[in-house]
């Protein structure tokens, strides 16, 4: 029973998502951003040359930066996808043709797939733009490139799932999108700033525990995961972590894979909250 239900729900959610313009309407700015950021190599070629950066590292770092922005669009898509059902009152029909929890899970899966598409779009267009635009850029070696592709897909997919969770919890569409953007663009930065300011006051060696929390916020965790590989390419294994600190704005970051797990936990927590709240909500 469970397998057919899952495939029915996935097919329905895929059709639901692809039968309206939103997913590719948001893909356009994602691609445009990837093109413009990577053509110029972002801020990286200038600000990071002091770290002894090599050219493939710069391209990887600018790709990572565009993936970080792409993940915001993936999250916005997820939020719009989920809250749009309440906005257009289509949620009634959706719940009548499938259970609430299967619908939520299918929505997370399809949202994640759209996030993965955004990541791939960013990487493909960003890579081409970077090779053409960043004069001396060379094609990154396969190891780091595939590493970045993997973490880029994971980050965008997980942020899309977080977006679905937010859009399910905050059913007001404008509210869900604004909340998401304000968090990503402002709240998390302010939080990081406050947490890190504790580091300056500390007298001991290394940043205090409170400053280390910065890496565990969902946006920063995503950035650490994305910049982990480019930073090593840029600054070498020895100074890689410092490069991640300055790129992601965190203190003493754990390894990239650990931050992916942290982000997955945030996404899981979001879905759990949406599950609990969504399962008992009155749909009138």
């Amino acid at each position: 029973m469970i397998a057919p239900t899952a495939s029915r729900m996935l097919r329905a959610e895929l059709r639901r998502t692809t039968s309206v313009r939103m997913w590719w309407a948001l893909l356009i700015p994602v691609v445009l951003l990837a093109l413009s950021i990577n053509v110029f190599g972002g801020v990286f070629s200038s600000s990071l040359s002091g770290l002894g950066g090599e050219t493939p590292g710069v391209l990887l770092a600018s790709l990572a930066y565009s993936l970080s922005l792409g993940s915001v669009f993936a999250a916005v898509h997820g939020a719009v996808q989920a809250s749009g059902e309440f906005r257009h009152r289509t949620i009634t029909t959706t719940y009548l043709t499938g259970g609430r929890v299967p619908v939520l899970l299918a929505r997370c899966a399809v949202g994640a797939a759209v996030g993965a598409v955004y990541a791939l779009g960013t990487l493909a267009f960003g890579l081409v733009a970077g090779l053409f635009g960043q004069g001396s850029a060379t094609f990154p070696s396969p190891g780091p490139l595939f590493g970045l592709i993997g973490s880029g897909i994971a980050v965008c997919a997980l942020w899309a799932v977080l977006g679905v969770a937010v859009g399910t919890l905050v059913t007001n569409q404008a509210g869900a999108v604004v909340l998401l953007l304000v968090y990503v663009l402002a709240i998390e930065n302010v939080l990081s700033l406050i947490l890190r300011s504790g580091a300056d006051a500390g007298l001991g060696t290394g940043p205090p525990a409170i400053a280390r929390i910065t890496s565990y916020l969902p946006g920063n965790a995503a950035d650490v995961a994305l910049y982990d590989i480019p930073a090593v390419e840029l600054a070498g294994p020895r100074y890689g972590n410092q490069a991640v600190e300055s790129l992601a704005g965190v203190a003493s970051p754990p390894p990239g894979w650990a931050c992916l797990i942290v982000l997955a936990l945030w996404a899981g927590a979001g879905v759990a909250a949406a599950w609990v709240v969504g399962a008992r909500r009155d749909v009138t």
């Binding site: 057919p4 029915r8 729900m9 097919r11 329905a12 895929l14 059709r15 639901r16 039968s19 309206v20 313009r21 749009g84 257009h88 009152r89 289509t90 009634t92 029909t93 959706t94 043709t97 499938g98 009138t284």
Partner: peptide, 24 residues
């Protein structure tokens, strides 16, 4: 039901195709 909505830019056929997939 009352207040059972449709996405304005989805066509009737697409709407029904979504539901057909969900119902199986």
């Amino acid at each position: 039901l009352e207040a059972q909505g449709f996405h304005p830019s989805r066509t009737a056929r697409r709407h029904l195709l979504v539901c057909a997939a969900a119902i199986g």
